[in-house]
């Protein structure tokens, strides 16, 4: 479930050929998709006579469904030298591997999302570090609640309980400290020195 924003118009324009087939993915639109901006872009390209066809659909990361959906656009795709895809990176890669000989242009950048937000993105993040620290921190994740992802305690940058990077963000370790005090588990702070293991990934 990724959030995207459209790249600068000039960046997209500089990559397009003379004939373009356009694919918009609304799959994760409930979280957000730059719908209006994308529609405006399509309108402009159409007005410029560049568009051989377009489809607005969802979940283009699913190659089987995408194939079925693109069947009726075979001629329009054939006639295009570029396929413009507004989606997250998975969608662009899926389209690119379906049309290996065509230039596929990514219309969007994702918002940086370092970790998993869950099936209902809300206020927690799991960085999927592979070595859960929550037992030592009262259930507040030090990797995502601390700008520096520190695992051994607060840095000196905390001011008024806020993070040095973003004064609008509560210091993660301040929260952890409070939580541990609240649940009577301040002893967790005496755990052995933590050193992160960056080799937990299942495939690299």
């Amino acid at each position: 479930m990724l959030i995207t924003e459209l790249k600068a118009k000039e960046t997209i324009a500089s990559q397009l050929g003379s004939k373009v087939f356009v694919i918009f993915c609304h799959g994760c639109k409930e979280i957000r998709f730059p719908e209006k901006e994308a529609d405006d872009l399509l309108e402009e390209l159409t007005a410029a006579g560049k568009v051989t066809g377009s489809i607005t659909t969802d979940y283009i990361c699913d190659p089987d469904q995408l194939k079925l959906r693109l069947e009726k656009f075979a001629a329009a795709i054939e006639g295009a030298d570029t396929i413009l895809v507004a989606s997250c990176g998975v969608g662009v890669q899926t389209v690119a591997s379906m049309f290996e000989s065509k230039k596929v242009v990514a219309a969007c950048d994702t918002y940086a999302l370092p970790g998993f937000q869950g099936v209902t993105p809300l206020e927690h993040d799991c960085k999927q570090c592979g070595e859960c620290y929550l037992n030592l921190t009262g259930g507040i994740c030090p990797l995502t609640a601390c700008s520096k992802s520190l695992v051994n305690g607060q840095c000196g940058g905390c001011k008024d309980g806020k993070c040095e990077v973003d004064p609008g963000m509560e210091c993660g370790w301040e929260r952890i400290q409070k939580r541990l005090a609240q649940i009577g588990r301040l002893d967790a702070l005496k755990a052995p020195i933590q050193i992160r293991n960056y080799a937990t990934d299942v495939n690299i």
Binding site: L2, G27, C61, G89, V90, G91, D201, N203
Partner: peptide
Amino acid sequence: SINYPGHHGMALTKKRCDA
């Protein structure tokens, strides 16, 4: 957690995006 680099899409293919 299980550490997968990047995000999978809403179809469980091998393709991933690191956002």
